[in-house]
Design a binder for these strands. Structure first.
Lengths: 89, 89, 89, 89
DNA sequence: GCGCATTGATGGCTGC
DNA sequence: GCAGCCATCAATGCGC
């Protein structure tokens, strides 16, 4: 599959395994952390459910609040766009 | 790849080519229509640009308006959820 | 929403709101149509699935057929170019 | 925000807003952390890409390593089950 | 077990 | 013309 031709002293097709390994392991570490947090979130939902709250409604509330935040950010963005557009004119 | 064993008079592995073909062609037709509309949209953007409008800003405006609509729909949805939750209680 | 009568040289920041609105609404309309068709496509897949067809395989078939078509068009285009180059338009 | 003192039998529709709010905010906080980590992961991929590594291949490698880990854990679990079944807990 | 929700992969579009 | 961005689409995992 490789057709290794030495074109410089260290061979051009060389893959820096150590460097790659470092990236891979950083990512795997981060993935673990992410999963841990996802599990935490599940736990909180479970706890809320155990306290009689409706998880489906909660998800919706959170989703709506997020939409509000996103919208707000977008509005700021478009203000910048308008200003830039006026500056261009 | 198939291991065709006759298990009834018409052979169980039989694929109804005509039926399948009909579905495939319906989808391909719809895909064409979809692409035609996507092309129309591009044309409108191009035309607007030709009239001196800032396409980037336009996209943002459209995006924001869509967020408004989506948010509105979500709010109606959560209202239903609330009502349902109260009905459950 | 704006009805800008004055389009003079120093109203540099002026935007023709009516014109812009028309473009925006044309695009939004087209986006709706596009979505409607996308939904139709989903429905057809669902219907095919309900008739026992394998959706994943169907997608593959459609993709392959599209590649064939594209390839064919590409080849015809090249042929035309050659013919044109030969003064044989 | 509500401070519901009355939690009597006929306030059937009552929702403990303060409690709910606490859950919601805990989840939102966790979601933020999760997103931050997801962003970190993207950055690492981008950095790796900038160092000439193939992101798609990296993803594949990480996926394969994860499958190995999962498989290993699964096997250990089964081994434990067998040992336990042998009264060798 | 199914549907839903999230997440990852791919292809198209935009801007440099 | 290509790289980065974004929207769409397939796949996996989760909860009901």
């Amino acid at each position: 599959m490789n057709k290794p031709e030495r074109v410089d002293s260290d061979s051009i097709e060389h893959v820096d395994g150590g460097h790659l390994r470092a990236f891979i392991e950083r990512i795997e570490r981060l993935e673990e952390e992410k999963k841990a947090i996802a599990d935490d979130i599940k736990e909180v939902y479970a706890e809320a459910k155990g306290n009689g709250f409706d998880v489906k409604v909660m998800r919706k509330v959170i989703s709506l609040r997020k939409m509000d935040r996103d919208k707000r950010i977008e509005e700021e963005t478009i203000l910048d766009l308008y200003l830039a557009a006026l500056g261009d004119a």
